[in-house]
Design a protein around this nucleic acid. Sequence first.
DNA 1: GTCTATAGACCGATAGAC
DNA 2: GTCTATCGGTCTATAGAC
Lengths: 221, 221
Amino acid sequence: MNAAPQFSTKERILGAAEELFAQQGFAGTSLREVTRRADVNIAAVNYHFGSKENLVNEVFRRRMDDMSARRLQALHRAVARDPSDLEGILAAFIEPPLALAIDRSGSAFVRIIARAYAEKNDGLRRFLSDNYGHVLREFARAIAVALPELDRDDLYWRLDFTAGALTYAMADFGITQRADGRSEAAHCRDAAQALIQFAAAGLRAPRTLRTDPEQGLEKHA
Amino acid sequence: MNAAPQFSTKERILGAAEELFAQQGFAGTSLREVTRRADVNIAAVNYHFGSKENLVNEVFRRRMDDMSARRLQALHRAVARDPSDLEGILAAFIEPPLALAIDRSGSAFVRIIARAYAEKNDGLRRFLSDNYGHVLREFARAIAVALPELDRDDLYWRLDFTAGALTYAMADFGITQRADGRSEAAHCRDAAQALIQFAAAGLRAPRTLRTDPEQGLEKHA
DNA sequence: GTCTATAGACCGATAGAC
DNA sequence: GTCTATCGGTCTATAGAC
């Protein structure tokens, strides 16, 4: 279960931190646990990363840079092929993170992403928004081109819904369980296919009618 | 910012815990912070709740019982009116939590739900599944009746996606910001309307075609 | 770069007086 | 039911030897 010893101290710390953060969250994981699993001295983490917060950021950077590049590359390929191919755009958004989930080395990371969204007030969220917000904005632009009739508010809402569904599916929450005969890889492909189908239909839905500001949800208690 | 002093010690602890858990997570919040904000003695939390874990459970129970009852009541009303009214079923699922988000007293709680889904390995998840899992199963049954053509796997996937989108929207992650002129209540109604429209279209999408197990997502590195 | 040792603070939980 | 005081343990971070 421990990180392989042929990697550098720094790499071993990153790997151990990724697994533990995925299992227990950031606040719920101590540096002592991390260094114990990585089989390095407790002082090494401060030598290599300076602080726990910076270690968290570096755990993200190691995977996110690659994942964002894969998403944008797939997006540009899909748009060059056919700018109105909504399914192609969605596949570019959805498949790279789910492909990462197949790897043993990346499966912990996708659960970390879900945790990051729940840890709302951290510097981590600013770090993610600053460093990777442009990816989401580029997808929003491509979808606006593919669906020119789509209302701007609906576009943003629905892109958020898609991201939420993806995050949720990646973290394998929920009631859908992998069938016994189906491999992990096949399960992820099923998820990607199902989500592309679901999100494409949702994005193509008729414009949402806004209710009168006076009425609507009943406020209770 | 502190809880009003006319409430009992127990209520004040619950209220303070709810706000802090929403902001900082469960592991990230200490009982000392909770009792400081509630303006009660540190020993009171163990007297009234026994342990931190049990306090977490009670924070949930206080809101979840009511929310689940509202969801099921709305579901039964919608199904009695028209068993094929998918939008009505979805409204029964989506509106009670978003209505809770409007209340000042409940807005922290909806963010806690998102945290609960991210805190994967706790007893909390078992607690939620044991106590409230039947609600989700009842919605699955109603949707299966409303959409008899819908494939069983697709139903479960798409219900998960809807729950993920709802969780994400409630916690106001994502890029959709409330417009300056729009009230919090109107914003929540917008979210509910947009999500019902999105999820209904997604659920009505054609059956997802499963790929051949041999091909699919490229496994990388 | 890696170690030991420790500072300085905070944690959850409890005992026991009132 | 509420308080003070405290136990035994944890934590992040750092100083300084090697």
